[in-house]
Simulated assay, not measured.
Amino acid sequence: MNFESINIWCWIIPILVGVLCAVFGYLLGKGGNTAIDHSSELNLLKDQNAKLEADLAACNKKMAAKSTAVVSSEIAFNKSAAKVAFGKNIKQDDLKVVEGIGPKIEGLFHNYDIKTWKTLSETSVSKCQQVLDSGGDRYKVHDPASWPMQAKMCYEGKWKKLHKWQVEHKRGKL
């Protein structure tokens, strides 16, 4: 091979490859721009979305109607029945009625926005333990396992049943 002729081939081959790649790239790119009509699928999805939004609106309306019914079905506090069962005046939503809860533990529950018998009755035992743990080591001796159950009896006005349970289970242990 002649080294003088190599110099020209070093220019021609890359230019030729570049031109061929450009032509093929243009042809491939031009052929890939065919538009696919998705309008039927889009219309189907819009119809499904409209149906789901209507179902959601109906569910929200139904839940709103139920929540007003629940508010009206709140259990009234019977102060005299509580006094008959315990022999002392009981204040509504006084958490100290629950065996094992004193003024300081009641304060801990108030810090966690648990201020009524109903909310305490709906609180899990693990959450009650978390509230106790927030008070430090001096509250480790308390066992909150029965507190939601006792609070539920208070909320439902089952004063005789609560008093009987507390007498049978000294210190609120199950």
Rank of each mutant, 00 (worst) to 15 (best):
E4K: 09
N7S: 15
I13K: 06
I15T: 05
V17L: 09
V17A: 07
G18P: 02
V23E: 02
V23R: 09
L28Q: 05
G29L: 08
G32N: 09
N33T: 04
T34W: 00
S40H: 13
E41S: 15
L44E: 15
L45A: 14
L45R: 14
K46H: 04
A50Y: 08
D55W: 10
C59W: 07
N60L: 07
K66P: 00
S67I: 00
S67R: 02
A69T: 06
A69N: 03
A69F: 04
S73C: 05
E74N: 10
I75W: 12
I75P: 12
A76H: 11
S80I: 01
A81H: 09
K83V: 05
G87C: 02
N89L: 08
K91V: 06
Q92L: 09
D93Y: 03
D94F: 04
L95R: 00
L95C: 04
V97T: 14
E99P: 03
I101K: 01
G102D: 10
K104M: 06
L108E: 00
L108I: 01
L108K: 01
H110W: 06
N111C: 01
Y112D: 07
Y112V: 01
I114C: 00
K115V: 05
T116Q: 02
T119N: 00
L120N: 00
S126Y: 08
C128Y: 04
Q129I: 08
Q129V: 06
D133Q: 12
D137K: 07
Y139P: 12
V141Q: 11
H142L: 07
H142M: 11
M149C: 14
A151S: 13
K152S: 14
K152V: 02
M153P: 10
C154K: 11
Y155N: 08
E156C: 13
E156M: 13
G157Q: 12
L162M: 15
K164N: 13
K164Q: 14
E168T: 11
G172Y: 05
K173M: 11
L174A: 08
